[in-house]
Design a binder for these strands. Structure first.
Length: 495
RNA sequence: GGCGUCGUACCCAAGUGGCUAAGGGAACGGUCUGCAAAACCGUCAUGCAGCGGUUCGAAUCCGCUCGACGCCUCCA
């Protein structure tokens, strides 16, 4: 295998630079996960897919990957910690909402959405992290970290909590560019802040709150941790004091990641992460998607209710490189579905060629291998998924050209190619067994097969009107028929 | 007010100084098929928001104009 550099845009320098693990060939990677107060939407998953593609590319390069993705289940307030008068914990707010009525308490709610998230994760063909740490499971470490920050003189206690003194950390703003903390508040319509804080930019490490539904006892009394401290603590707990790479959505650059840097580097005196990358937001029909606008799609809604092929959804979410805004539309989902079908069709063609066992070798393997190498090159160049997909699709043209007369050797080469493309992009085959889904009627396969048999009998009898009627009826149900040399096959039409 | 991104065909999108401006979707014509579907073949941007400039040479660099968008405020 030729040696390749894996290059990614670093959010701090805005330059594309080589990702170089401190331990050569062993990537220590932390990716910010969701706050589990609701079902994750496709925008969340664009970010998680970016992380997934990094893991897959690193694996393709033969690296070992220590991959951690957290689950936030406490401490994420509805209002920023900077202006934290009146901020409400997202988990508590969700419990009070209409959907929250189904849960006995906030712990159950967190558990439910956390599990739903993990199930969506698998359906989107995402690599499993080494660990999925939860904020609530690392309370002791968080409290210890806050104590240490106070001891070191970088944090102070007020009647409402413990705050990090931003002016005590010289590098504050190095990631986001928000260097001048006073400038930040000029032109902002209203600054609501805790009057006990020394500066509006100081952020909460611990909130005192005896009424909070999730609370722990600390040296500062009952309360709960601030949102930022969990990631610092869990990242360092599992991956060490300096990460090779830290990823997240673009909204997390400030304040979340800026605060993580301030806390972590103050604690260790070492760089927190050598490389930062951020996935740009997804838009829907040219508009920003957000919960407050209500124009958002969830994985569950599309896959369970609308029967969209999860692989098509994944394809649509990764077709545009992570550094550019992606405009998600019904059209983009249809395009994605078409191409995913091409891969699947090639997979069937390769299986059939292997089964037929025809002799010969038309050199398909060489062509496909070159294309795979080019696809991997594209992924190593800042995850250029557009080019990687283009190369992957060129491979399908080569496979289709070989067609039904493909030899066994070429069939095996095609199969191996698709396996490698799938390992890199995850858009050919599902990597996990399908889980039972509660919603939607299952297709009665026996009934469909009976109708196909009836249609074939009608065709044989040259009763084409009857044959076409059966095909038309099934099509109306969303089942598409296709007559192939191996017989009639059917598939569910997605979207 | 601060920080940042982008404008390439009907749609998505690659290309960041130099061969014919990748690839996909849609559309149209053809082959195959009882007819379809899938597949294959062919057609589909003398031009890259506009205007200037630099250069032997620019979609690519510089300036201005117009337009779209993101973060700083709930969000990945």
């Amino acid at each position: 295998m030729k040696t390749r550099a894996f290059r990614l845009t670093d959010s701090q320098s805005h330059q594309v630079k080589e990702l170089q693990p401190v331990d050569k060939g062993h990537l220590k990677f932390y990716s910010c996960g969701p706050t589990v107060y609701s079902y994750a939407h496709i925008g969340n998953f664009r970010t998680f897919i970016t992380a997934d593609l990094i893991v897959r590319t690193a694996e393709a390069l033969g690296w070992k990957v220590s991959y951690v993705s957290n689950i936030t289940d406490v401490g994420h307030l509805t209002q920023d910690d900077m202006a934290d008068a009146g901020g409400e914990d997202k988990m508590e707010k969700a419990l009070k909402s209409k959907e929250g009525e189904a849960f006995a308490n906030v712990w159950e709610l967190a558990d439910h959405y956390g599990n739903a998230f993990k199930s969506d994760w698998k359906r989107m063909n995402l690599r499993l992290p080494m660990v999925w740490p939860k904020a609530t499971q690392h309370m002791r470490e968080q409290i210890l970290a806050v104590e240490e920050l106070i001891d070191k003189g970088h944090a102070y206690e007020t009647p409402t909590g413990v705050y990090f003194n931003v002016s005590s950390f010289e590098d504050y703003g190095k990631l986001s560019g928000n260097r001048d903390q006073d400038q930040l508040y000029r032109g902002v319509r209203e600054v609501v802040t805790d009057e006990n804080k020394q500066h509006p930019s100081d952020f909460a490490l611990w909130k005192k709150d005896e009424k909070h539904l999730m609370q722990w006892f600390s040296p500062w009394g009952w309360g709960f941790p601030g949102w930022h401290i969990e990631c610092s603590v869990m990242a360092m707990r599992y991956l060490g004091e300096t990460l090779d790479l830290h990823a997240g959505g673009e909204d997390l650059i400030f304040p979340h990641h800026e605060c993580e840097i301030a806390q972590s580097e103050t604690l260790t005196g070492k760089p927190f992460a050598n490389h930062w990358i951020h996935t740009r937001f997804l838009q829907v029909d040219g508009e920003k998607m957000s919960k407050s606008k209500g124009n958002f799609y969830t994985v569950r809604g599309l896959v369970d209710e609308e029967k969209v092929d999860p692989l098509a959804l994944r394809y649509a979410l990764l077709a545009v490189p992570y550094g550019k805004p992606l405009n998600f539309t019904r059209q983009s989902l249809r395009d994605a579905g078409q191409n995913v079908e091409r891969f699947k069709e090639c997979d069937r063609l390769a299986d059939s060629a292997i089964q037929k066992g025809k002799e010969g070798d038309d050199g398909l393997g060489k062509t496909l291998n070159d294309l795979y190498e080019q696809a991997l090159d594209a992924m190593c160049e800042d995850l250029n998924t557009s080019v990687a997909i283009a190369k992957a699709l060129e491979g399908t043209v080569a496979i289709f050209k070989a067609g039904d007369s493909m030899s066994k050797v070429d069939g095996e080469a095609a199969k191996a190619y698709l396996t490698k493309i799938n390992a890199l992009l995850g858009i050919v085959r599902p990597d996990y067994e399908a889980e039972e889904t509660a919603t939607g009627p299952a297709v009665d396969e026996t009934r469909v097969q009976n109708l196909i048999d009836e249609r074939n009998a009608a065709k044989k009898a040259k009763d084409y009107a009857r044959a076409d009627q059966i095909r038309k009826d099934l099509d109306a149900e969303g089942i598409e028929l296709r007559d192939t040399p191996e017989g009639t096959v059917w598939r569910l039409k997605s979207v």
